[in-house]
Design a protein around this nucleic acid. Structure first.
Length: 589
DNA sequence: GTAGGGTTAG
């Protein structure tokens, strides 16, 4: 048995006088045992390994007659046996083994060994020190290059950013070639930590250090900037790099397009589209998803369907995202027949609906009062959600999943259950983010529990989740419904003071609030004000103001706005007509 | 190794 032989190799050779000849003999005995044992792991007792020391360990690891995998086995054996604590491999053993693994092209294993160095407080040291431990050989430069490159990645993975930068500095100083792909690993790690300043700064350093920049790292940084709402800066960066010969691709353009769409910047959207045309960058499914979102959010349903047709005609393969967005917009205008036919089409193509798809459908069937159907869809979604979690093995549902389920329940007006899901999430130790808090606040508002909603707003500020425009919109809507206009205006001032501009949702709630409060003139003032600010009223906004005017007996004005709405290319729905008809009734009586 | 996630209004 291998273990027995290994023990013998220590006991046979008695070390009376520490001498390299004896060490070599012990090392060679260990090597022989390891070769015989193959890949089989082995165990031993601590007392019998008392002759072991770092020189012997090194001799074994350096033994070229020993396959690297056997070295690794021995190394891990020494590392993980608690009784061999004093014989754990030293820094030199780590470096030597890492280099041997590199020679053997065992990169994943090499990375693992470097990870031990980086995460062990007793082994961590400067890059200069580490490099000095790399043995001389014919391929030394190449070896050091690869060693540094991988170390850089390992530091990034462990979020040891300062150490990673030191490696980068060293590589630059030593004129070692720096791989852009490793830099991307670093950039992604920074982005995950929301450290965009460092991310942007590092990208500049990459340029200065003459790292070969491709569209991948460029797009990554552009995305980071767009998320921070620095779309202008992102676009300028694209321009700068274009001059240097780095051509943006469809992903780059999609990223910027998304940035402008989120900001509802018409000029920006058009500029990106014309640049895509100039560069002959063809739209892909993601581009269509974004454009459908853009047209849908401005109420142009016919354009949504036109785009979808265009996509299929051009042979761009539809995916679940683009289907979901077309389904979602059909649901929003109450065209459930079309929505379900799209679902059939989607499943026929072998695509699987996701939580958004379900969310859109639930929203749609609730609108037409089919609560039974909504229940079924929710159940279906929950079970699929569980499956999705099972697939990821060992992963708990994340804040996204909890929110999706809670919002599904909200649409069914099952507020208590929705809240329970979110509180369960908090109990399980997940930190609620802005969206979770906003959903909770929205639920409270819908339940009419305004005090609780207000308390949650303060609570989220304390917990460091910064309320956004959606949060304020939910509260403004809640207070509007209760005709508490004084608080409504206070909330509007507060959101503006925090640097958030009222958007279409805010104005629609304000207009609706003033209308039900009986101040239609005030509502009209707001309606004009929003247009002056460049905000585009949508069907909901028009319905609110048309309904207010109608109920006030001002049918002429209501019809005038209806025409205006059609002219703007908006698709009217049931509720607009109801408001107008209600107005005629009021006028006659 | 880069893009389209979950929250708001009639």
């Amino acid at each position: 048995m291998a273990t027995q032989k290994l023990i013998q190799s220590f006991t046979k050779t008695r070390i009376t006088n520490p001498n390299s000849v004896y060490y070599k003999q012990i090392a060679s005995n260990i090597s022989k045992t390891l070769i015989k044992s193959g890949l089989e792991p082995f165990k031993t007792t601590p007392s019998l390994l008392s002759n072991l020391n770092s020189s012997i360990t090194r001799l074994v690891i350096e033994d070229t007659s020993l396959p690297p995998q056997s070295c690794l086995n021995f190394f891990n054996f020494l590392r993980t046996s608690p009784s061999l604590f004093s014989h754990r491999p030293d820094l030199q053993a780590h470096v030597t083994l890492a280099c041997r693994l590199y020679d053997a092209r065992k990169f994943a294993e090499m990375k693992n060994v470097l990870n031990f160095i980086v995460t062990d407080a007793n082994l961590r040291c400067s890059i200069e020190n580490l490099v000095s431990l790399v043995e001389n050989g014919s391929q030394k430069l190449k070896l050091v290059e690869k060693f540094c490159d991988m170390l850089f990645r390992v530091y990034a993975d462990n979020r040891l950013f300062t150490d990673a930068i030191r490696v980068f500095d060293y590589m630059e100083k030593s004129l070692l070639k720096i791989d852009e792909r490793s830099c991307i690993v670093f950039l992604i790690a920074l982005k995950k930590c929301d450290n965009m300043d460092m991310c942007f700064g590092f990208f500049q350093r990459m340029i200065d250090a003459d790292v070969e920049i491709t569209v991948y790292s460029l797009t990554l940084v552009i995305n980071g900037l767009c998320r921070r709402e620095e779309v202008k800066r992102a676009k300028d960066l694209m321009g700068e790099m274009f001059v240097k010969g780095i051509k943006p691709n469809v992903v780059t353009y999609n990223t910027l397009l998304n940035g402008y769409i989120k900001r509802k910047d018409i000029g920006g959207v058009n500029e990106m589209l014309s640049l895509m045309e100039r560069d002959e960058v063809a739209y892909n499914a993601a581009t269509y998803t974004l454009l459908i979102e853009w047209y849908g959010s401005t109420g142009r349903m016919s354009e949504v369907e036109k785009l979808f047709d265009e996509m299929l005609e051009r042979g761009v393969e539809a995916d679940v995202h683009v289907y979901t967005s077309v389904i979602s917009w059909n649901c929003r205008v109450g065209n459930m027949k079309r929505a379900f036919s799209l679902i059939d089409e989607l499943t026929e193509k072998g695509l699987v609906p996701n939580s958004h798809t379900y969310g859109a459908l639930i929203d749609g069937v609730c609108k037409i009062g089919e609560m039974g159907a909504a229940e079924m869809l929710l159940k279906d979604m929950q079970s699929r959600g569980v499956n999705a979690i099972m697939e990821k093995k060992g992963f708990e549902p994340d804040v996204f999943t909890y929110n999706t389920i809670a919002s599904g329940l909200c649409k069914l007006k099952r507020y208590a259950e929705a809240k329970r899901w979110l509180f369960t999430m908090i109990e399980r130790g997940l930190a609620p983010n802005v969206v979770n808090f906003t959903t909770l606040i929205d639920i409270c508002c819908k339940e009419g529990k305004l005090e609780e909603a207000k308390w949650l707003l303060e609570e989220m500020k304390i917990k460091g989740a910064r309320p956004n425009a959606v949060t304020y919109n939910s509260l403004i809507h809640g207070y509007s419904n209760k005709k508490k206009m004084k608080e409504v205006h206070q909330l509007r001032s507060e959101m503006e003071a925090m640097g958030m501009m009222p958007d279409v949702y805010t104005y629609t709630s304000l207009i609706h609030g003033e209308c039900v409060f009986g101040k239609v003139d005030e509502a009209m003032k707001l309606f004009n004000e929003m247009k002056q600010k460049g905000l585009i009223p949508n069907v909901v906004t028009y319905t609110s103001i048309i309904s207010g005017l109608s109920k006030d007996g001002r049918s002429d004005e209501a019809f005038r706005l209806y025409d205006e709405m059609i002219e703007a290319g908006l698709t009217p729905d049931e509720r607009v007509f109801t408001s107008l008809v209600g107005g005629l009734h009021t006028a006659r009586s």
